[in-house]
Computed example of a mutant assay.
Amino acid sequence: MSYKKLVQFGLVMLVYLLVGGQTALAAQSIKIGGNYELSGAAAAYGQAMKDGLDLAIDQVNQNGGLLDGQSVEAVVYDNKSDLTESASVAQRLVTEGVVGIVGPATTGNAQAEIPLITKGQLPTVLPAATGDTITLDDQGKVLDYLFRVCFADSYQGIAAAGYAHDQLKAQKAAVVVDTTSDYATGLADNFKAKFQALGGQIVLEDSMAAGDVDFSVIITKLLNQDVDVIYMPTYYTEAGLFIHQARELGIQTPILGGDGYSSQILTQLASNEYANEIYYTDHFSLVSEDKTVQDFIQAFKDKYGKEPGAFEALGYDAAMVLMDAIERVGTTEPQAVKEALAQTKDYHGVTGTFTMDENHNPLKTAIVVQLEEGQVVAADNYEVSDSKSN
């Protein structure tokens, strides 16, 4: 081959490689990381949120993907409901080239990943970590790369107290709290403060711990007290067992809790006959008449053959908000994406319409769900106004 032909051949190959390389780059998918509790104590939450994430990505891909046709791919790992594993998963996702993370589900596991996503400058959206100050560092400064789509514990506790006082006409309350859980103590502290500010009286306080299965001592104390409502902000397993035992022993007092009640496991453990006059603050309701919510419910049923709950909805909204930010800003560059997340305004999700505040928390109303015979019979929007807040 002559020198001239060799040069021409080289130019042809160069063009081919350049075009081929561009095509390959265009074909690359945008990776969204999932740090979820797929096993362990909080597996029901993590799996639900993963289902929401997967549905969100399916819908985005069916509608043409992101950024001029790039498909989206979920890269999800199991943190095993463990703090150390949560940090390890976050580090793995940082090094694997994801453009953002959704999850973990719980406040404790989310806190474990914060140093990794902060150092890695990776935009992260928490679906359901409700700890009051989780989006702030130790000095009270907002964490640039951390956001959430759920309301905080203080809001849930205040809303529950307001609802108990205003709607259930309660004047005397008992509070049973898991003292080993920041989630439970956060809700309980704010419930007590708000209920007392409204003129209510806390006549009994007692403690429990995660993993407890026998609540007979607490129930005996409750049987000897005149209370209008029992506030027990814990997770679905202990709540379900408590409800069953309390009702079986004759306590008919309304029982209130937080979004930790939002699982079919609660009603399975409580049994339908005992799951009456149960109320809990939540983020989502199947009985909503909002078209966005009903479309989501139908899409979820089509994909999974069952109805979604609050944690599926929160997982969906967290993923959608992250992808919406990427699309709005037109890039996956972390600095730009986190700024777009911070500027989220009037986003109409399936858990409500919300705007991110200066601390990366969504401004939204709470829903108070009522169970009768194990079924949701009502879901009331309850807004904590400035005049009612502490």
Score class of each variant (00 low, 15 high):
Gly200His: 06
Met232Ala: 12
Ala318Cys: 01
Gly108Gln: 14
Tyr304Thr: 07
Lys50Gln: 15
Tyr16Val: 15
Gly131Tyr: 02
Ala239Thr: 09
Glu327Thr: 11
Pro123Thr: 12
Ser2Asn: 15
Gly65Lys: 12
Glu113Asn: 08
Leu25Phe: 11
Ser216Leu: 06
Gln201Met: 07
Thr267Ala: 11
Gln156Leu: 08
Pro362His: 11
Gly315Val: 07
Thr84Gln: 06
Gln268Trp: 00
Ala275Leu: 12
Pro362Val: 13
Asn272Met: 05
Leu146Tyr: 09
Asp357Cys: 04
Ile57Val: 14
Val177Gln: 09
Met320Gln: 15
Ala336Ser: 13
Ala210Glu: 15
Asp78Gln: 07
Gly352Ala: 12
Ser39Thr: 14
Asp132Tyr: 05
Leu314Phe: 04
Leu136Met: 09
Gly260Ala: 04
Ile202Cys: 08
Tyr16Pro: 08
Pro233Met: 04
Gln335Val: 13
Ala26Val: 00
Val217Tyr: 08
Gly65His: 08
Asn224Val: 07
His165Phe: 13
Gly315Cys: 06
Ile114Pro: 05
Lys172Ala: 03
Asn63Lys: 12
Leu187Val: 08
Leu363Glu: 12
Glu73Phe: 02
Ser389Ala: 15
Leu269Arg: 06
Val177Thr: 15
Lys192Cys: 03
Gly260Trp: 05
Glu37Val: 11
Asp182His: 01
Arg247Thr: 10
Ser81Val: 10
Ala340Leu: 04
Gln156His: 07
Lys303Trp: 04
Ala366Asn: 08
Tyr36Ser: 10
Asp68Arg: 15
Asp317Gly: 01
Pro233Thr: 02
Ser216Tyr: 00
Tyr382Glu: 05
Val329His: 02
Ser288His: 01
Gln139Ala: 11
Asp317Ile: 02
Gly349Arg: 01
Gln59Ser: 13
Tyr163Ile: 00
Asn61Ile: 13
His348Pro: 01
Asp138Ala: 15
Leu198Thr: 01
Val99Gly: 11
Met49Asp: 10
Val321Gln: 14
Gln375Arg: 11
Thr353Ala: 04
Gly20Cys: 10
Thr84Trp: 00
Ala128Asn: 07
Pro123Glu: 10
Gln294Leu: 12
Gly330Ser: 05
Leu25Asn: 11
Ile101Asn: 08
Leu363Gly: 03
Ala275Pro: 09
Tyr36Ala: 14
Glu248Trp: 08
Gly69Ser: 00
Glu312Phe: 09
Pro254Cys: 09
Ala27Asp: 13
Val98Gly: 05
Lys306Glu: 15
Pro334Ala: 06
Ala239Trp: 08
Leu256Asn: 03
Thr124Ala: 12
Gln59Pro: 04
Leu66Pro: 07
Val376Lys: 12
Thr331Pro: 03
Gly199Ala: 10
Ser39Asn: 06
Tyr145Ser: 13
Thr124Asn: 06
Leu143Arg: 09
Ala161Phe: 09
Ser263Tyr: 05
Gly260Val: 07
Val227Ile: 08
Asp228Trp: 02
Val287Lys: 14
Ala26Lys: 10
